[in-house]
Design a protein around this nucleic acid. Structure first.
Lengths: 355, 355
DNA sequence: GTTCTATATAGAACCGGTTACATATTCGTT
DNA sequence: AACGAATATGTAACCGGTTCTATATAGAAC
């Protein structure tokens, strides 16, 4: 591996000049510049950033600790984060803890020993891991991603699932639905449940308890809930499901019951899992802004690494969800109005708000 | 950030001793060892690997360049690779090119400037990128992952899709099926198609052209093919689909036609996509050994980084697929034999063979 | 023709470790 | 008691860059 000294020798200048050329700090004459460039490409010289970091204190590395890279949500965030970092000349060291807090702690230690300049992390799973992050945050910026409730780290970027749910329900109401069911949990996805209720109220619609089925969040739950809903006298004309798995269960159950989707029943899900687009019919759903999450996390970190790192106190950026309109929703079949085929895929973009 | 000098001062020894303590090279008395350990934990000292790498030439970093991290296949490989690396004290710098060869080339350059000790890459998409990898391979080991046909890099780990298809068809034959259909393409998944034919022949079964439907590889294709197959006089009792999407289309079509799966029709897919486990019924399928791919790639790299790096010439490790047996297959319904409920999920592990 | 400033470069110190070398000790042997 | 090997440690050079300082040259201003 050629070093800067080799380049200097070949170009007939001193190392100092080569370094000035590389960093752009200080004067380098046009002639020298040219000879150095030639020497570099001739030798195939590549700067050793580890060595440079000794003096500059900047390794050009960031750390990303996740609990489950398998999770498509995480993978897409990681992808966006990594690309945004590379666009700025940074590399991302990725550490997958596999959900094990001890591994996560080890990972943080490993990343620190590599002198990463900042950390992005998914929600900590244990108090010990949390403590390790707090400790790390004293040395470098640590940006959290996800649904933390207590921001223990430098900055935080989260998703406003509530607003997504609101968009979904509003969309159904605007299509003309009045009997909209909710299937999901009241706890984990509580934001969605609450948004469902408040949105109905905001539009002056009653919140019929017969249309609310609380339970687990898998396909089976969606199936059973639908069966129960349609055993009633006045079944819903639309269903808002707390996630896509539930929504798919609803579609499946409707199919078994001979209820056409979307003509007789509109269904809307949450999360925009890969499968949602390929369901039959393709599922309208509330998408998490995964790529934006990654980009925003990087942007926050970037600002902390900039010239004015302590200039602003801890921030939380909340991203809005995006309603992905596919083909599982239509106006209610009720009085005389023929069901209209909704347009093919388009999206409502959510903007982000800061706090 | 405390340095080794701080530790040395606090422990009342010299830096040299601290370094010997850290690396394990050379003598350190028990007393010194103890005082150093105390000083380290008191100061919260973390070794600076970038600085260490200047002398040792080992950064403790590996690079992983992928074309699509979003792809669940890639994500799982990355996850396994990263965990295997961390278990050995290494970090992985992940670079997602997003399928753009130019980004991939940039990524390689970035990784080289970070002095990664080795590279793992998914198949190169362009000649230029390929050239960049060949250039990199002159400096460090480069292990390829995936379905390359021409190993242009140091080592290679691939998947023998053919053997997976063979396992699937054998499994169906062992259940007692004799009329086994193939739905898929003959080109892309040609290994699977060929394996289907040869496996039938190996068991002395005829290869009825009426049972082969070649086309695209999506759910719709599976649906149509099934409809066509059952319009014939002698429909199949089992279907081997070239991927899970097709298999799911088959299941769906069977459902529409009132054919019970697995009682009247056994279905087997390929890939083990996330959805396969949650289909109704859960789909028996040929899984790609994704985690093993990552681990094996790391193992190959590891050997290259060991004391005997040039000891062996370029190697190719081919991993077998794994048949994941769920509930979509059963013995044929034919003569009097009642359909037996197959056992719940279990797997046939494929071992790996080297060449 | 000086003096001042902007441009340009070489040289050396330094970043935080590792390691070769020199220098003690300690212990078991003969 | 003397000797060699094993144990232990401090010192200094070195890894590959960056940056500070000092020095040199060129052109502008007077």
């Amino acid at each position: 591996m050629p070093t800067a000294y080799d380049v200097a020798a070949k170009a007939g200048v001193s190392v100092g000049t080569v370094s000035r050329y590389l960093t752009g700090n200080g004067y380098v004459s046009a002639a020298a510049r040219e000879r150095i460039a030639a020497a570099i490409s001739e030798l195939g010289y590549i700067q050793n950033r580890a060595a440079a970091s000794l003096t500059t204190k900047r390794t050009g590395l960031l750390g990303f600790v996740v609990s489950q890279l398998k999770n498509p949500f995480t993978a897409e965030v990681a992808s966006a984060l990594g690309q945004a970092a590379r666009a700025r000349g940074y590399g991302v060291v990725l550490a997958d803890s596999g959900g094990d807090p001890n591994q996560a702690i080890d990972a943080v230690e490993l990343l620190r020993s590599h002198e990463v300049e900042g950390l992005v992390v998914t929600p900590p799973e244990s108090p010990e891991y949390n403590a390790a992050l707090v400790a790390a945050a004293r040395t470098m910026p640590v940006v959290g991603i996800g649904l933390h409730t207590t921001p223990s780290v430098t900055d935080l970027v989260t998703v406003d699932t509530r607003s997504g749910a609101q968009q979904a329900v509003t969309y159904l109401i605007e299509l003309g639905h009045t009997r909209i069911a909710y299937i999901g949990s009241s706890t984990m996805a509580s934001g969605r449940y609450q948004a469902y209720r408040t949105t109905l109220e905001a539009h002056g619609l009653p919140c019929d308890p017969e249309l609310i089925v609380l339970g687990s969040l898998d396909r089976e739950a969606g199936h059973q809930a639908t069966t129960r809903l349609f055993a009633q006298d006045r079944p819903p004309t639309a269903v808002f499901a707390a996630n896509d798995a539930v929504a798919l269960g609803v579609v499946q159950a409707a199919h078994s019951l001979g209820i056409a989707v979307p003509t007789q029943l509109s269904v809307i899900g949450c999360d925009n899992v890969d499968l949602a687009a390929h369901a039959i019919p393709p599922l309208t759903t509330v998408a998490q802004p995964m790529a934006l999450l990654g980009q925003t996390a990087l942007e926050l970190l970037w600002q902390r690494l900039g010239p004015d790192p302590a200039g602003h106190s801890p921030r939380t950026v909340t991203l809005s969800c995006e309603l992905v309109i596919r083909e599982s929703c239509a106006p209610p079949a009720s009085p005389g109005r023929p069901s209209v085929q909704p347009p093919s895929e388009r999206t409502h973009h959510g903007q982000h708000a800061e706090s």
